[in-house]
Nucleic acid binder design. Structure first.
Length: 332
DNA sequence: CTTGCAATAT
DNA sequence: AATATTGCAA
């Protein structure tokens, strides 16, 4: 029974494969790259103080995120009647838009979990590769009684992409905020639970600790996942510990660049699959040296018209469909 | 009620 | 092996 799932996170306008409606109004709008992150002060600190301009309240990613959610919920409230013109499938459950994009059978759970075919895939990333996610919505129900207990989420698979998102968020949060709940919110991945994050965070911290303690030894093949993601130097707390092992000389005097949170993307439906236990994890050979992030994936095939949207994260990294609940499958 | 963490469970 | 759960003390 080891079922695992991948949360696929695609972009917002995932209405339909052949969708261009969005572009109608979207055309001409600045791209994410042109926009200044909301929480970023418009006026440099130095400048502001020089002119005695009252500093804008420092907004954190949390504030922005909260604001986004408020906006979305209010929109949801008033425009839910418009079924046609909106491709935004807000994260609400069975919204109208659920039509094709998300074939929700059970339609009354926020998470759709169903059995799906056994296909496994990995994502490819890297040089503008394409990625995709499998989203097989099968109407096949597994074993549990459908009665009322619909809550068995499949195991989350921390794909490199998901992990990167995690690391980025953690890195950009101030330590005191880097707690499960917050991280979860900022990652903004549908279906991700606090527990998922807490569990991963726990492991991640152990990994970091190990790294600092024995920086010399080179247990090369530690965790493939963690090892492949550079450790942010955000480990320094304001006032407390100070360690850091591999930090980079990051001296930017003046205005530290605050990264921005992930774009809202409340559409992704976790598509899951159930899996088999795994034992043969056949994904990628463990020692794939060199490839720092988003390493390769594997064989893939198939993508849905809906989720081929890709997004860029604030660092300029390109996320494709990402996470995706997947089986741990059996193939091999 | 949320966190951090270790011990377990799957 | 990777995640999830659980139990407890903060």
């Amino acid at each position: 029974m080891g079922e695992e799932v991948r949360i696929t996170d695609y972009d917002d306008n995932v209405g339909g494969g052949d969708e261009d409606r969005v572009s109608e109004w979207e055309v001409g709008l600045p791209t994410a790259d042109d926009l200044t992150p909301l929480f970023q002060a418009l006026i440099p600190q130095e400048l502001a103080s020089a002119f005695s301009i009252s500093p804008e309240p420092r907004r954190s990613v949390l504030d922005v995120n909260r604001a986004s959610q408020n906006t979305l919920s209010s929109l949801r409230g008033q425009s839910q009647a418009l079924s046609s013109s909106n491709n935004f499938n807000f994260k609400s459950f069975n919204e109208d838009g659920a039509r094709d994009a998300l074939v929700v059978e059970g339609h009354d759970a926020d998470l759709i979990r169903e059995g799906s075919d056994s296909r496994k895939l990995q994502n490819m990333e890297g040089g503008g590769g394409a990625e995709e996610a499998d989203s097989a919505l099968r109407t096949e129900n597994c074993s549990d009684d459908p009665s009322a207990r619909a809550l068995k989420r499949p195991r989350l698979v921390w794909t490199p992409q998901l992990h990167k998102r995690f690391v980025d968020v953690v890195a950009h949060l101030e330590i005191k905020n880097a707690v499960p709940k917050t991280i979860m919110q900022l990652m903004n991945v549908e279906g991700l639970t606090r527990e998922n994050v807490a569990s991963h965070l726990q492991k991640y911290r152990l990994y970091l600790k190990r790294m600092q303690e024995v920086s010399n030894e080179g247990p090369s093949s530690s965790d493939q996942l963690f090892a492949s993601t550079p450790v942010p130097q955000s480990l320094n707390e304001s006032g407390g510990n100070g360690h850091g092992q591999q930090n980079n000389s990051n001296n930017g005097h003046m205005g530290m660049p605050i990264p921005m949170p992930y774009p809202m993307q409340m559409v992704p439906m976790p598509v899951l699959g159930m899996a088999h236990h795994g034992q043969g994890h056949m994904g990628m050979p463990v020692g794939t040296p060199g490839v720092p992030e988003g390493f390769h994936g594997g064989y893939e095939s198939h993508h849905h018209p809906y989720n081929m949207v890709h997004q860029m994260d604030w660092s300029g990294n390109n996320f494709g469909s990402v996470a995706s609940y997947r089986y741990t499958n059996d193939d091999k």
